[in-house]
Design a protein around this nucleic acid. Structure first.
Lengths: 112, 112
DNA sequence: CCTAATACCTCGAACAACGAGGTATGGTAC
DNA sequence: GTACCATACCTCGTTGTTCGAGGTATTAGG
């Protein structure tokens, strides 16, 4: 209700992270940039959202982390576990159900 | 992360309430039922969400409330203010942007 | 008369999202 | 060589929403 910032998402960060990592192994910073590019700036995963999410997802056994040297830098690469894949499938179907429902309501309540 | 309940919405209740009230004046209980029917049970506005939301929206000047007698019952009917209409337009476009972005990511990150 | 549906409400817990801040390294330009 | 920016990771506290559980009262039906 802050009038300026609408938080029309929830679970979306988790969904996006899982989806991208399902494709290939990535590290935090890379994820943030990829999301921005992929969504054309529509969605931005702030670091205050990203890193806590990654840690929490790892703790829940949805992600696997591994440190790797690349370009003289130490990066933390994440990949999906089997449990993470199931979670992704679940969140995806849930998203579609809700998105469809919202679209139906927006289209016109008269069509009930 | 509760594994059982995914909260893939945020702002969605507000959006739905505004959208339905843009069509016609309604009272709380009616709104709850309409949403359930309209979304085929996909979205359910619990009363613990609905009533606080209505009060907050009224307080923000997005809704107008008026008590009416109907069927021997006292009901509180809500309707959109001009400010509420602007807010609805804003939330709608915001929703579409995000939904599109998520769909793009789900479709396949490889298409970046 | 008792129950179910209607109709409204509040409270507190839980949790996600976020901005702001903090550390450290590597590359580039001056 | 040193200033600066991008990279790369992190945590903290605040804010706001969502949600279930609980509470009250009225009306209609069996």
């Amino acid at each position: 209700m802050t009038d300026a910032k609408a938080l029309l998402m929830s679970g979306v960060p988790e969904l996006l992270i899982l989806r991208l990592l399902a494709e290939r192994e990535m590290y935090g910073y890379e994820l943030a940039k990829t999301v921005r590019v992929l969504t054309r700036e529509a969605i931005s995963l702030g670091e205050g959202v990203l890193y806590p999410a990654l840690h929490s997802l790892e703790l829940s056994g949805l992600l696997r982390a591994r440190r790797r040297q690349a370009g003289g830098r130490t990066r933390v690469y994440y990949s999906l576990t089997a449990k993470g894949q199931r979670r992704l499938a679940y969140l995806t179907s849930r998203w579609r159900r809700i998105a469809t429902a919202v679209e139906a309501a927006l289209a016109g309540p008269s069509h009930a």
